[in-house]
């Protein structure tokens, strides 16, 4: 039941992009086609889930006992950067098809603030290990859902008659705004 609440709240109610504004750059940048958006979303899901599983023991078993909790920002960003490299190498070696699909997006994820944001939020909110991993997973799935929805809408508005000055980024931002209104409707769920 608890996990169900986490799912609803981190995927829909406080959607990572549309209400927390994390990961805006890939959300606007890589959402022109549904396939690339889904690839980016899948890569982010993969990395955020692993990152939230790894930062938990690092914080509670290494940083906190040594009284180094204030180093969490430095430690986490380095862990995430190393993790992205590591995931890339492992995928290249053992799962070439998955690497083919996600490869281009992996280096972009280090600078995706959603990964660091989720890791820091997990610690700030004092979540346990299982809760942290599931929060990570469902937050990332929320990212996947919203970027795929945006990409599908963008594929359609490509053929519409948009006013000259709204072409390009402005219309994407208007779309995102309307999506954010729709996601506000989930606010009463939890």
């Amino acid at each position: 039941m608890n996990i169900f609440v986490i799912m609803i709240s981190s995927m829909l109610v406080s959607n990572v992009v549309l209400s927390q504004f994390l990961g805006i750059c890939p959300f606007l940048g890589v959402s022109k086609k549904v396939e690339t958006a889904a690839g980016m979303g899948a890569a982010v899901t993969f990395v955020i889930t692993i990152a939230s599983a790894i930062t938990y023991p690092i914080y509670y078993f290494i940083l906190e006992p040594l009284g180094l909790a204030y180093l969490e920002t430095i430690a986490f960003i380095l862990i995430i950067a190393a993790l992205v490299q590591f995931v890339e190498m492992v995928l290249k070696k053992f799962m070439p098809p998955l690497y083919e699909a996600l490869g281009v997006y992996l280096p972009l994820i280090t600078t995706n603030c959603a990964v660091l944001g989720v890791a820091i939020n997990n610690i700030t909110n004092g979540l346990g290990f299982i809760d942290s991993v599931f929060t990570g997973l469902f937050t990332a799935l929320g990212f996947l859902v919203s970027i795929v929805i945006l990409a599908s809408i963008r594929e359609h508005i490509e053929f519409n008659n948009i006013p000259e000055s709204f072409k390009g980024t402005p219309i994407v931002l208007v779309t995102a705004s309307l999506m954010a209104i729709a996601f506000c409707g989930f606010a009463g769920l939890v």
Partner: peptide
């Protein structure tokens, strides 16, 4: 002040920049 407003304000802002052909990453 809510989340959707942020996107809308930025959208209008970039649209104005496009309209006036001001230098911007969007045009």
């Amino acid at each position: 002040v809510l989340a959707p407003g942020a996107f809308l304000v930025l959208a209008c802002l970039t649209a104005i920049q496009n309209k006036l052909k001001l230098p911007s990453a969007t045009n």
